[in-house]
């Protein structure tokens, strides 16, 4: 069987959905960040597949930038989680409940 574009796209979509499910169901802030990373990497896979399909480098360049952005986001995210831990002695997002309507 030849692995076609669609195989990569379906794999990407699956990984993306796993990431979304992780963000929506998990309570630990670090796991949520990791799930977001999974979503971004699923998109990266999609980009690479399309870049190969079009024979065009734009998609690959896009992936470099999105990896850099993801790294920056995680750096800031972990710093915020450290501050959260100092306040609450926990990183469970169920305990983040000061602000309510």
């Amino acid at each position: 069987m030849i692995i076609s574009l669609n195989h990569y796209l379906v794999l990407g979509a699956f990984l993306f959905c796993i990431g979304v499910a992780g963000v929506l169901t998990r309570k630990n802030a670090i796991i949520i960040l990791a799930s977001v990373e999974l979503m971004l990497n699923a998109v990266n896979l999609t980009f690479i597949a399309f870049a190969r399909h079009w024979g065009d480098a734009t998609g690959q360049i896009f992936v470099f930038f999105s990896m850099v952005v993801a790294a920056a986001e995680v750096a800031v995210g972990l710093a915020i989680i450290v501050v959260l831990f100092r306040h609450k002695e926990s990183i469970n997002i169920d305990e983040v409940n000061l602000l309510k309507w």
Binding site: L33, M39, A42
Partner: peptide, 29 residues
Amino acid sequence: KSNESSLKYLLLGAFFTGFLLYGMALVYG
């Protein structure tokens, strides 16, 4: 409160960045 505000913004912002980026990938495709 300030910390909580930034945590909520970050987690949801990063989550929606995923959707935005997926949209870009499909448009590119």
